[in-house]
């Protein structure tokens, strides 16, 4: 197992647009193995993007299987050159980031997305994601474009929406 050091903000690499992967070779596979190990080692991490370990190419891990409570998911995904092709709905959720320790904040993301990417062998793949998994993918793909969740924060006080009633009679 090889862990890579996590790049922490304000390191400028986190604000840099990453280059597409051109070659699906052994070097890529070695790097992804390290990235998976680093993600698994991150406290509570459900995803990671290559620039978070200083590798400036468009690669990320999305792993909703590691959610605290079970959520719909497509397993542990390795996404190379991912691209979101459709967005639907809005949902607010609480996010944190391995590159921004000790802070969490509210971010609005699309509730459902479609994305296409390549796997480690260079085969085209596509997914329809919703909820928590879609949130992870949007957070990680943002990293590939030099965007942090800090760039998308909304107020903590003003979030009176999208919840289920705790009492049946409040549902009227």
């Amino acid at each position: 197992m090889a862990l890579r050091d996590i790049v922490l903000y304000p390191d400028n690499r986190l604000k840099t647009v990453c280059d597409p992967v051109e070659s699906f070779n052994a070097e890529l596979r070695d790097f992804v193995r390290d990235l998976l190990d680093t993600c698994a080692n991150g406290p509570g991490a459900v995803g990671i993007a290559a620039p978070q370990v200083g590798f400036m190419q468009r690669i990320c891990i999305v792993d909703a299987t590691r959610a605290r409570h079970p959520v719909p998911n497509h397993g542990k995904l390795i996404l190379v050159n991912p691209e979101i092709t459709a967005w639907e709905g809005f949902a607010m959720g609480r996010e944190g980031c391995l590159s921004v320790p000790d802070y969490t904040g509210n971010v609005v993301r699309a509730e459902k997305i479609q994305l296409r990417a390549y796997d480690l062998d260079g085969q085209a793949v596509s997914f329809e994601m919703e909820g928590y998994e879609a949130r992870i993918a949007q957070h990680e793909i943002d990293h590939l474009d030099g965007i942090l969740f800090l760039d998308r924060l909304i107020s903590r006080g003003a979030d009176l929406f999208q919840r289920k009633p705790a009492k049946g009679k409040a549902a009227e």
């Binding site: 409570h69 959720g93 980031c97 391995l98 928590y132 009633p165 705790a166």
Partner: peptide, 19 residues
């Protein structure tokens, strides 16, 4: 659920996403 009927309450889990 047992609160007075004039109080409207919603509860939602905060599922932290760290990536």
């Amino acid at each position: 659920a047992n609160l007075s009927s004039d109080i409207r309450v919603t509860l939602s889990p905060i599922e932290l996403m760290r990536g």
